[in-house]
């Protein structure tokens, strides 16, 4: 089945009562054609919630009317073929898209009921609350210690050297890296292995005590063993943080996340409990993707 054919399928299940995210239609004055997501986009007591988000790169629309809640202390994974806008959507959640000149975001995204795109919200402070881990490990060319201490120093989180030391130690410990690096804290972070570097980046994000951690394909540059180690870590971090993870591996989504959102060509096609999505996809596009008919 070609992509064109898949796209031509009209949503056959959008009119099933109860499955449509009820808040999608609310106040939707957006110019783009509404796309009804299958599954329940809302959760009770969300940590972040996005409503009717459209993203444009110049004139090209990359995200089309997406609404999605991210629940407290849950891991939500975002899957979909490459170029479907997963990273773009993720980067809306901490306003990293602000750094791209041609990128324009419409719609409403809230963090703990505060609109993060409102004038009173400082994007810089927002990014301390919504941390990010990138696809390729990107430690600073500084010592392991300084990599972790960077954020706390910038935000003035430590009043003394000993407090800073403590933050560094606990962050590294939470990222499961302390035992491996405690004897080489002054050595450059770039000298670690790829998996260690990625856990260093996670520790760096944790060090400023964010509420949400966004991860954009954090394991795509890692070998299977390092990947397993990071997945374990994600599972542990769920106790204290809300995590949104983009992944191209469906197995990974199945292993680490509670909810899964499937994106296709800028649309949020389906969202639901991870188990449901993988065992019983409702939308034909989702089904086609997870059964491996395209990707």
């Amino acid at each position: 089945m070609s992509k064109a054919n898949i796209y031509a399928i009209e949503n056959p299940v959008t009119h099933q009562p109860g499955w449509i995210g009820s808040r999608v239609q609310e106040g939707s004055e957006n110019t783009a054609s509404p796309y009804a997501t299958v599954g329940n986009i809302a959760v009770p007591n969300p940590r972040m919630s996005a409503r009717s988000v459209n993203v444009f790169y110049d004139e090209k629309q990359a995200i089309n009317n997406v609404s999605l809640d991210i629940g407290l202390n849950e891991v939500i994974s975002m899957i979909g073929p490459s170029g479907c806008g997963k990273s773009t959507f993720l980067r809306c959640l901490n306003r990293m898209n602000d750094t791209i000149d041609i990128c324009r975001v419409e719609g409403e995204i809230t963090l703990q009921d505060e609109n993060i795109y409102s004038k009173s919200m400082d994007a810089v402070l927002l990014r301390a609350r919504v941390g990010m881990v990138f696809q390729k490990p990107n430690p600073f060319p500084k010592s392991i210690y300084d990599n972790i201490a960077y954020g706390p120093k910038i935000h003035g989180l430590a009043r003394s050297r000993s407090e800073l030391n403590e933050i560094v130690e606990t962050s590294l410990a939470k990222a499961g890296l302390w035992d491996e690096v405690k004897d080489r804290l002054t050595k450059p972070g770039t000298g670690l292995s790829g998996g260690q570097q990625q856990r260093l980046c996670i520790a760096r994000a944790i060090a400023v005590s964010p509420e949400v951690i966004l991860m954009d394909e954090p394991c795509s540059a890692l070998d299977p063993i390092a990947t397993a180690r990071v997945e374990e870590l994600i599972d542990e971090l769920r106790q204290n943080y809300t995590i949104a993870i983009v992944t191209h591996s469906m197995q990974q989504a199945a292993r680490v996340s509670q909810r899964t959102a499937y994106f296709h060509l800028g649309n949020l096609v389906e969202v639901g409990e991870t188990n449901d999505i993988f065992t019983n996809p409702k939308h034909p596009l989702t089904e086609a993707y997870i059964t491996g008919r395209f990707g």
Partner: peptide, 27 residues
């Protein structure tokens, strides 16, 4: 200097000039 380093710094909540002073220039 790779963009990924700037992203890392901005993503942690550093301002543009903090990023330049503490990450870009040292690199």
């Amino acid at each position: 200097v790779p963009q990924s380093l700037r992203d890392a710094s901005l993503g942690i909540g550093a301002t543009h000039s903090e990023t330049i002073r503490q990450v870009v220039i040292p690199a």
